[in-house]
Write a protein that binds this DNA or RNA. Structure first.
Lengths: 235, 235
DNA sequence: GAGTGGTCTAGACCACGGC
DNA sequence: CCGTGGTCTAGACCACTCA
């Protein structure tokens, strides 16, 4: 039999996935949860500890425990690892290049866990920092999960995709896996990023996951790393 | 005043840094530590929990708590994030290109926390996977910390640097920070890696740290990413 | 069976936030 | 002041390892 605290963690996670408690809001207090699960407070604590370590819950002493949200000050760029090498403050801007629907290729279908040929929304955009192009993004999400998604919404939301997924579609991006390579910019890429053809660019391929490790988004970012770098901590 | 468990953690960390307990060996049991610190077992537990989460200690149920070591099965490549995209098993080999001593430049000095002009050991090597060149590494360490380091040792140890730092010099690599970019291979790099000049390569710049976040090694890896990628988990 | 880490409990008290 | 999460304790029992 599983340890009790893992069962509690599972039940809390299920409630979160069901949307019983909304992002940014508080969940019941530890004592309340302990009572409703008929366990001690320490056991609930250990369950919440793990969820907090996974950035799914956020503890605030004296206030309560909250559901993590992308719709908050300072948590928008949680998954952007690219930072300025000079450490300046920068203004990020989003420029939509194209917004289409298409059929999932074999690769995209596998990444998103859908069948080949399933309709996906395909977004192409350029992110600029201080007016200069920095990242060319290709984003693909299953159309079925994002029925009312329009190009206007993306522009209006200023490209804060995960925030939009959360507030507009009730889909919470929890974690992601990235594969990073160095590639040469093709003609299209070089033009959009304003560099010469074959300039080396950082290729960052991302699969974003929600509860139960369900994929919700595939993304490919092509980044200029003349004045920026991808930061990674190892331990 | 700091929480008790953080004081305990600090004292345990100090003992580790002093080399009181050696890598791969077990530290005293939780009850013993609790007695010697005059705290409850739960408090020691919380301190060890954090050190285990940082991969500094390793718990083994029924056996004890051990000091993490690079000199163990399966922990040699703990910090190598580059993996085959095809997921094959691969044989890693180490080819020393050059081994010299030189004066630290401004940049290296800053990275290693030493004065400009301090003598550093400079290692240049090529890592091959399945006989093919994959990574060109530039490694620089302060000569003062590695007095008896010779090129023969590196060859003999098959390039397992962190293992060698630990077993031969008593220096434990605990964590690292990496900055990743895409750059074009210069003439020298392209020749050593067996690719055309200006091929895009992944530039991975690493600073390795030991206790108290003291830098022990600066490293630049230039990696081919035709059939490999750098894997990164975000949460 | 003895010794280790792992789980669980119950209760006390502390630190912080907000009414 | 009360309710929240954070710390600390003491003790019971479980699960695993090894002699």
């Amino acid at each position: 039999m599983n340890p009790l605290y893992l069962q509690v963690k599972k039940r809390i996670t299920e409630s979160l996935a069901e949307g019983l408690w909304n992002p940014g809001q508080s969940i019941p207090s530890e004592v309340e949860l302990a009572q409703s699960f008929s366990v001690s407070q320490g056991t609930v604590r250990k369950a919440i500890d793990e969820l907090a370590a996974e950035n799914i819950l956020i503890r605030r002493q004296g206030k309560g425990t909250f559901v993590a949200s992308h719709d908050e000050e300072g948590s928008q760029l949680r998954f952007l690892r690219l930072t300025s090498t000079q450490n300046n403050k920068e203004n990020l801007d989003n420029h939509l290049v194209s917004f289409t629907k298409e059929k999932a290729t074999n690769k995209i279908a596998k990444s998103l866990g859908v069948n080949i040929g399933t309709t996906v929304v395909s977004i192409k955009r350029v992110l600029t920092f201080n007016q200069k192009p920095l990242i060319l993004d290709f984003i693909k999400v299953p159309a079925s999960s994002f029925r009312k998604l329009t190009s206007e919404m993306i522009v209006e939301k200023k490209g804060a995709m995960y925030r939009m997924y959360e507030t507009e579609f009730g889909i919470q991006m929890l974690r992601a896996q990235e594969k990073i390579r160095a590639v040469a910019a093709d003609a299209d890429t070089s033009e959009l990023l304003g560099v010469k053809k074959n300039t080396p660019v950082l290729s960052v391929e991302r699969i974003s996951l929600t509860y139960s490790d369900k994929p919700i988004e595939w993304r490919l970012g092509l980044c200029l790393t003349e004045n920026h770098h991808y930061a990674s901590e190892l331990d």
